Amino acid sequence: MSEGGIPTIDIEDFPAQMGKLREACEKWGCFRLVNHKIPLTLMSWIEMGVECREIIKVYAKAVHGVGMEIAGKLAESLGIISSSGESEEIFRDWACQFRINKYNFTPETVGLSGVQMHTDSGFLTILQDDENNGGLEVMDNSTGEFLSVEPLPGSLVVNLGDMAAVWSNGRVSNVKHRVQCKKGEVRASIASFVLGPKERVEAPTQLVDSEHPRYMRL
């Protein structure tokens, strides 16, 4: 398993972080996001049940805003728009999904896979991981080995999916990842998905040229 860590992006440090964001998306297809402005008090209900409907609504709205901001900055880093504020026209009507994952790990399942290796089918996933029971691993594209993404309280993990690879004309990676059982305890995580447009997605014309023929369409 690879050592080190995935890139960290400070959302308050733009445009200085623009090049780092693009590099993270191209080489890794994922990064850790800090200073995202979602209150820690709102993130602290991760172990609570779905009966907290109103809290979930507030959280979902807040994390959707973060997703739209990230998408805009990615589009800006690729030269598709001149400022992330223009992203509203691109991503406004893209479908989104919110999901709470619960893994009933036991001492007998330690060392086994909770979720097999896969890529997400959508555009990007914003993950709030369990701060007490990790297990998320992402593939290091340079080695093909898996890297453990240790929990960091107050941060979010952003994974790019298949839709992002198509939309960017193959310029960004759709990260391969999995979940391993590290502790024999219940593990919970919250995943917010920006899925994609209602119609077929294809790369913007700015990303298609003789050196970069159209990647594919979905």
Rank of each mutant, 00 (worst) to 15 (best):
G5S: 11
P7S: 01
P7Q: 01
D10N: 10
K20C: 15
E23W: 06
A24W: 00
A24M: 04
C25Q: 01
W28N: 00
R32T: 03
L33G: 01
H36D: 07
I38S: 09
L40R: 15
T41W: 11
T41G: 15
S44N: 03
I46R: 11
R53A: 12
E54C: 13
K61F: 14
V63K: 07
A71G: 04
A71R: 03
K73N: 06
A75K: 00
L78M: 11
G79S: 00
I80T: 02
S82Y: 11
S83I: 02
S84A: 07
G85Y: 13
E88A: 05
E88S: 13
R92H: 15
W94S: 08
A95I: 09
Q97N: 11
Q97I: 12
K102L: 03
N104T: 07
T106D: 06
T106Q: 06
T106H: 06
T109Y: 06
T109W: 04
G114S: 01
V115T: 05
Q116L: 10
M117Y: 04
M117L: 06
G122T: 05
I126C: 08
L127A: 02
E131V: 11
N133M: 04
M139S: 09
M139Q: 15
D140S: 05
D140F: 04
S142V: 00
T143S: 15
T143Y: 13
T143E: 14
G144A: 08
L152V: 15
P153E: 13
S155E: 06
V158N: 12
N159P: 08
G161W: 03
G161A: 08
A164C: 03
V166R: 08
N169D: 00
R171Q: 10
K176L: 13
R178Q: 09
G184Q: 14
G184Y: 13
V186G: 04
V186F: 11
A188I: 06
S189L: 07
S189Y: 08
S189D: 05
A191K: 02
K198D: 10
E199S: 12
V201K: 09
E202P: 02
A203Q: 01
A203V: 01
P204C: 00
V208K: 10
V208C: 09
D209I: 00
E211H: 07
E211F: 07
H212Q: 08
Y215S: 07
M216V: 03
L218C: 11
